[in-house]
Design a protein around this nucleic acid. Structure first.
Lengths: 247, 247
DNA sequence: CGATTTTTTGACATCGATCAAAAGCAGTGG
DNA sequence: CCACTGCTTTTGATCGATGTCAAAAAATCG
């Protein structure tokens, strides 16, 4: 059913997400135990990783690519409720069924653990449990920030907010000042952006065009974005313009 | 500044939230340790418990009353991002400043712990850490369900969703069937509901009047609500009508 | 009972949704 | 290389749900 392939024997020491994922605080011996139960799975863009309501028999970390969590109403309206970037964790220890669909938005590689062994390991490894709590609190903060976006921001502010979030996560390796331009590729289609923002794809398209016309962003093709002035973008997002960078 | 008073020496064994709060899984000896560092604080309706950006030097559980988490934009637009009912936890171990305002929506009693001792106790007490992770995952689920409400539901569906959530949490002690009427008092003003739902208070008022006219709800005064048919209300909310009760 | 807050109701404006069509772009096979 | 197909994105015209502004009504409180 799921055309995925395995990448066995990859070494945790070389892992690109080693220092940010759920295993970030693990000692060498703990890491060895994790290494013993882990396996890799790849998914193609567009594939469904987990269906809402399904039994979840594994948990894991996004190694590369982007996944999304979405909720769908009976009549087809859909809302994205989470965007999972590399190092983010998928799954909920202690629960057996998934509350939302998990989709591969791009080609994706995950580092998986069968749920049962992971839970047992977690129970005897405070480093993992502690890290998972921290990550869950971070996700809760992100979800609540997104509630403000969904509930109170205008379409233009919503687009600017999404762009600034992607820019910030993407640029965390890049320059630290807010004066240098930031460049990145949009990993989402207009429709996925609309589902994230509670808009229609037409409105997304119009607002992106408007931001481009007003020189808040530059576009090469449909996906390659340049932010000449991050402060300007954050003003457009309705956020405190210095909150993100200086704190 | 904060006119609060203390209720010392209350016994954990008699605590009304004992079985649902962060201390739910504690053994007798763990409970004694918690009892040693706890203290009670009362807040009046409308009081701010914690300001966004403030140092948080305590964490704790809501014992009675309702608190809300709200985010405010520079121009005054506000969005409620959390509704804390009795047994819910306030505070984030490991973080030092609050990301949102915490307000007492009604008169409120909290069972507090100074943050530092609580964190230390948590680190040596897996029962507490584990329970807190479970509660945080529950909050994350609730936040994500709310994202669907904010992003994709109509004003009428939003009101119906809020009523059904309050009804469900209120009625968890009450009858288990969906055929008996459910009765409760709304703990929120129209304005607070508007802030929760991303609406204006006028729209909230109009939609409540409409639901009343259509016999989905009955009102005595402005706050006392009767739900004659819970299934009907959940249809109006756009939810699967049996999801909440049978699962 | 008067003062203040909360809620309702009305008239009107607007932002974003909807419906429709065209344009751009990628892949496929002849 | 081009014609064909399907998908994404843009653009245009129109409509309707919800916001805004204003005032009255109801509830609460001293």
């Amino acid at each position: 059913m799921t055309p995925n392939f395995k990448i066995d024997h990859a070494n945790c020491a070389d892992c690109p997400i080693r220092h940010r994922a759920v295993c970030a605080h693990c000692e060498v011996d703990e890491l060895e135990e994790l290494e013993g139960i882990k396996y890799y799975r790849s998914f193609e863009a567009g594939q469904t990783i987990i269906w809402s309501g399904d039994q979840m028999n594994f948990v894991g970390s996004v190694v590369s690519g982007i996944a999304s969590l979405t909720q769908t109403m009976e009549d087809g309206r859909t809302q994205m409720v989470g965007l999972l970037l590399p190092s983010d964790f998928v799954g909920r220890p202690g629960r057996d069924s998934a509350p939302y669909d998990v989709l591969a938005t791009t080609d994706l590689v995950m580092c998986c653990f069968r749920k049962k062994p992971f839970e047992e390991l977690m129970n005897k490894t405070p480093h993992i449990a502690h890290r998972l709590l921290q990550m869950t609190l971070d996700e809760l903060d992100a979800a609540r920030e997104w509630m403000l976006v969904l509930g109170r921001k205008t379409a233009r502010e919503k687009i600017a907010s999404l762009l600034s979030i992607i820019a910030r996560r993407d640029a965390s390796v890049g320059p630290k000042t807010s004066t240098e331009p930031i460049v990145f590729d949009l990993p989402l289609t207009r429709e996925a952006m609309a589902d994230y923002l509670g808009l229609t794809l037409e409105t997304v398209s119009r607002q992106i065009s408007a931001l481009k016309k007003d020189k808040v962003i530059e576009l090469e093709g449909k996906r390659h974005v340049t932010i000449p002035d991050m402060g300007r973008l954050m003003d457009e997002a309705g956020d405190d313009s210095d909150g993100g960078f200086l704190v």
